[in-house]
Write a protein that binds this DNA or RNA. Sequence first.
DNA 1: TTAAGTGCAAAAACTTTGCATATTT
DNA 2: AAATATGCAAAGTTTTTGCACTTAA
Lengths: 153, 153
Amino acid sequence: MVNSTQYTSAALKAELNSKGWRMTPQRETILKVFQELPAGNHLNAEELHARLETSSGISLSTVYRTLKLMARMGILRELELAEGHKHYELNQPYPHHHHHLVCVKCYRTIEFKSNPILTIGSKAATERGFKLLDCQLTIHAVCPECQRSIVPL
Amino acid sequence: MVNSTQYTSAALKAELNSKGWRMTPQRETILKVFQELPAGNHLNAEELHARLETSSGISLSTVYRTLKLMARMGILRELELAEGHKHYELNQPYPHHHHHLVCVKCYRTIEFKSNPILTIGSKAATERGFKLLDCQLTIHAVCPECQRSIVPL
DNA sequence: TTAAGTGCAAAAACTTTGCATATTT
DNA sequence: AAATATGCAAAGTTTTTGCACTTAA
């Protein structure tokens, strides 16, 4: 378990309460799933729901509501890597913060880090008075394998 | 009309043909719509279809198919700025290439440029053998106005 | 000619919402 | 006690697909 200490459920509760929202077992469980997710993994709503269903019976509605809430709070990052559905991962601070290189054909995804980008992104936001939540470079490209294949689309 | 000379329909035809695909009036028309779109504008499938419907009667299916095709060819950029639907814009080279700063609450979007990011992105792709199609930094943040409002979500 | 592209309508996939009930604060 | 959150089922959006017909190469 690599990332489990980043963001405690107490911190989540505090942040929720400061805005008049509430901590619930569902939200705590969902946070935990993301914290225990191995680096480089992402989940969409359906996948998260599948993991939760067995143990806790959290509904799909709540999954969607929680993902949106946490993304807007800056706790989760919304990734648009593959077709059709958003994926989510923990929004981690500096040493773990990373970007994505995605093959538009096979959707293979590679993570990479870059401090300069983080710096440029923060500056772009703050100098316009925006409060930064997330800063992600997404590179769309064709991977070496797919460059060779003549497969269409 | 600022960008009309960037990418001719002849160039599109050549690129399509090189892969066994075909130029069609629909594809030509859609390219033209994007070329004539004022800087800073984006269209989703529905909006593009609405513009086409009046004159040319291009179907929604074709709109979706064409957007996906052109995005994967690197001609269009797929943007994930607001809720629920993708937006598209021309994927423009260097002097026009830009990134997006988006308010997660009101979805106000600001474009900004950065050469260093383009450089870092190209390098990240090519040093892994990927052929670069697009490189976009998306910054999620809260705009000054929305920081003041206590409106939830 | 013949393989790719289009339009249509139907289906699929994804996400949101209304409402009664349960829970935090 | 009051207001937020949840679960369920239903509805809403967005996107894809099958198929017969058309058209570019």
